[in-house]
Design a protein around this nucleic acid. Structure first.
Lengths: 199, 199
DNA sequence: GTCTATATCCCGATAGAC
DNA sequence: GTCTATCGGGATATAGAC
């Protein structure tokens, strides 16, 4: 599938991917149907399959095209910055993603929950990035800027805590009542991380 | 569906529920098929449907029969105990569940991730339990035993952190290499919670 | 490029013999 | 109680007209 030539093709492909994100993130890969996606994109089902060869291909393109943006907050964590503020900034950017892009979060959550059946071969690259940042955190700890701490589990903590608000939104809302949890969530996370990390 | 009479009936129903847990937790409700469940239970598909009237019913029975055990760790958090140790004990019991019952965790994760389509009417009961325990935590804070903290977000933190190791196991393993993460996970969580909660 | 119609397959559930 | 055989619905994907 090469680059779309015309403006309308580009628009349709974009609409399909947006619709697919909506449907896949809510129902998972198997739970989603092409009828739902075509409907949400404002196209007929055969027309949808004119732009993408298969359901699998739409899903794969979604995942791979979003993955890079999803890892950006971690890439931006800067070796040269203030350690506590860098980690806090990373956590905040991650929580912003949960607030602003909950469907993307749930798309990845579905994928990981089922054992990364479509993203298995990108896991080594994730490990490479995480290991690299783990070294940065270990350096900060050795310099006495933060407490000595397992950097991988710190990463899991930040992932778990931030993504929880997007992925398990239904439960969060049910427990809190109707509220937008994000302002308090950030204050809470800042308290937790500052205390956890203080040297 | 009344109590099964014979020993073999009981055994088959148990085998079916065990097989269904395996399959539903891995593939979600829609992703799971009765063929897979029947196969895992060592029965034919029609025979499976002799014991349960429908796929939906198997899933529902699984969820409701496991829900109570799933909330037990929280119920056991004791108003009269030492606050920090009670919260820590709760978190430890929850992490033990993730280690010993990861399939149950993923079963609920799938359900919540898709908006609790089958557990919607049990959410009020969950909220009641959580609100009750939130009051206990608020009491501890007022007495100066722990820091003043939002008890609901503390709950989310513990849920997110502990369930992460079961629900996103594929990612955890990919990032860490091959290791069993649980010993370090508990040490990490204890460090994090003690510092977060100290008055 | 987009549609209607349809082929093909898979899944949940049922019928009926044993 | 358990099986083989099958129904009926729904899903992915394709054919072919326009």
């Amino acid at each position: 599938m090469t680059k779309p030539a015309t403006r309308i093709q580009k628009k349709n492909r974009t609409a399909i991917l947006a619709a697919a994100l909506e449907v896949f993130s809510q129902f998972g890969f198997r739970g989603a149907t092409l009828d739902q996606i075509a409907d949400a994109a404002g196209l007929s089902k055969p027309n949808l399959l004119y732009y993408f060869p298969s359901k699998e291909e739409i899903h794969q393109q979604l995942l791979t095209s979003l993955l890079s943006a999803w890892l950006d907050p971690l890439r931006k964590m800067d070796d040269a910055g203030d350690p506590i503020e860098e980690i806090l900034g990373y956590a905040k950017r991650k929580l912003d993603l949960s607030r602003d892009y909950p469907r993307e979060s749930r798309l990845f959550a579905n994928e990981v929950l089922q054992g990364v059946p479509h993203l298995g071969d990108t896991m080594p690259a994730l490990k490479t990035l995480v290991d690299e940042k783990a070294k940065v955190i270990n350096g900060w700890a050795k310099a006495g800027k933060i407490v000595a701490i397992d950097p991988h589990h710190l990463m899991f903590l930040i992932w778990a805590q931030t993504q929880h608000y997007a992925d398990f939104d239904a439960q969060v809302r049910a427990v809190l009542g109707r509220d937008d949890p994000f302002p308090e969530a950030f204050a809470f996370m800042e308290h937790m991380l500052r205390r956890t990390l203080a040297p």
